[in-house]
Simulated assay, not measured.
Amino acid sequence: MFAVYAKEANTDDPLASLVVGERPEPEVPAGWVRVSVKAASLNMHDLWTLRGVGIKQEQFPMILGCDGAGVLDDGTEVVIHSVINDDSWHGDDTLDPKRTLLTEKHQGTFADYVVVPARNVLPKPAGLSFAEASTMGTAWLTAYRMLFVKSGLRPGQTMLVQGASGGVATALVQLGRAAGMRVWVTGRSEDKRALAVELGAHEAFEPGSRLPERVDAVFETVGKATWSHSVKSLKPGGVIVVSGSTSGPDASAELQRVFFLQLRVIGSTMGTRDELANLLSYVELAGIRPRIGDELPFTEAGRGFTNMLKGATAGKIVFAH
């Protein structure tokens, strides 16, 4: 079958390990289902896989892709939940010490077919296209958990999203605006800031700018480059919710400010199957359509990876058959 995969780990030149070609069709274990993939979205996790982060050498070659939407063998249209839990686990999917994401142990969604446990598919909302639905399982689910499960924000409060144009950030802007938050963002370029305002941000600022006032919560996926600004932007008692560090993790902790102002720093990773179900219901009820920055055929996957590596994103990059 057709697939986009990593042939090996390459820390220094990840795109050199990217192959667009053929892989064997997957077998379907008992309790699992086969999905004919119609669309799948690109995530930073796929670049980490190409670099060999979070995957053992013996797992290569590995079909890439955490997210996807497609059709079961019986014709049911579905969205894929990418967190795969140990059979014995009960509780929050994200706290299972034996959990994996697609592309870490099991082959991913950038292919004609992917197989996942039966619990890992949910009905696709009729109002979303396959391309739009394919963005839900990682970036949008991460944003949903950060905002509605971890932050404690209430409608009318002010949130700051660092790094305005990535998949999680654009989802946070759209979700926050729909939920009645005052949404502020930072963005490196005028185009990125304009995109955030188009998606619902009330104001957009250059990175590191002094804000008109301090905010109730900051949503961090950038890390080193924005961390100090995030801490300084918070009201006393405010919260930073962190789900990534794309510019590097070695940020100054600013501990004096953290303890003196009683700030909270909360980690957030992905989300649960139930949270994905709630997210799918919410976007349908609220009439939210996720922003797709670029939709490419799977055969042009290399172009999408190149754009992500350069930071040339304006919403989610989606591959489709």
Rank of each mutant, 00 (worst) to 15 (best):
L64G: 09
E254N: 15
T306G: 10
V218N: 03
A30C: 07
Q59C: 11
Q262N: 12
D92E: 06
H45A: 12
E254T: 07
S209A: 15
G65F: 04
M159N: 00
A9P: 02
T269G: 09
F148E: 00
G152K: 13
S134K: 03
L153Y: 00
Q256M: 10
K150N: 12
E25M: 06
F205M: 04
D46W: 03
T100I: 06
Y282K: 05
F130G: 07
V53Y: 14
Q157L: 02
G156A: 10
F110P: 13
N10P: 05
P61C: 04
A286S: 13
E27H: 13
V149K: 12
L279C: 06
E220D: 14
E220I: 11
E58D: 08
V258S: 00
T246L: 14
A196Y: 02
D92V: 05
L195W: 00
V215K: 08
L175E: 11
M181Q: 06
F259M: 12
S281T: 15
G70N: 04
R182M: 08
S189T: 15
V183R: 01
K56S: 14
G68K: 03
A253H: 09
W227M: 01
V168F: 12
D274W: 10
T272I: 13
V4I: 15
K232W: 05
A139Q: 08
G238K: 02
Y144S: 01
D73W: 07
V116M: 09
L72F: 03
A40G: 03
Q262P: 01
Y144V: 00
S129D: 11
K235W: 05
F319T: 03
G237E: 00
M270D: 12
M270I: 04
N10S: 13
V33W: 02
K235A: 11
G180H: 05
V283N: 01
D216Q: 12
R291I: 05
A131F: 01
V283T: 01
L50C: 04
E254M: 15
S88L: 14
G315K: 01
H106F: 10
N278R: 15
L50G: 04
Q162Y: 10
K7S: 08
R257I: 09
V114Q: 01
I55F: 12
G108I: 05
E27I: 08
A39C: 09
G52C: 14
A164Q: 02
G237Q: 04
T138P: 00
Y113G: 11
W184K: 08
V116G: 06
I292D: 03
H321C: 10
G21C: 13
D87G: 04
S243L: 04
P29W: 14
E220K: 12
G304S: 09
Q262W: 02
H45S: 10
P29K: 14
F205T: 03
A9H: 03
D13L: 08
W140E: 07
N278H: 13
V78M: 06
R51K: 14
N120V: 01
G166N: 07
F319C: 07
S129Y: 08
E25V: 07
A164Y: 04
T170M: 10
L280T: 00
D93I: 05
E25S: 13
V19M: 08
V114A: 00
P117L: 08
T158I: 08
V183E: 02
E8G: 08
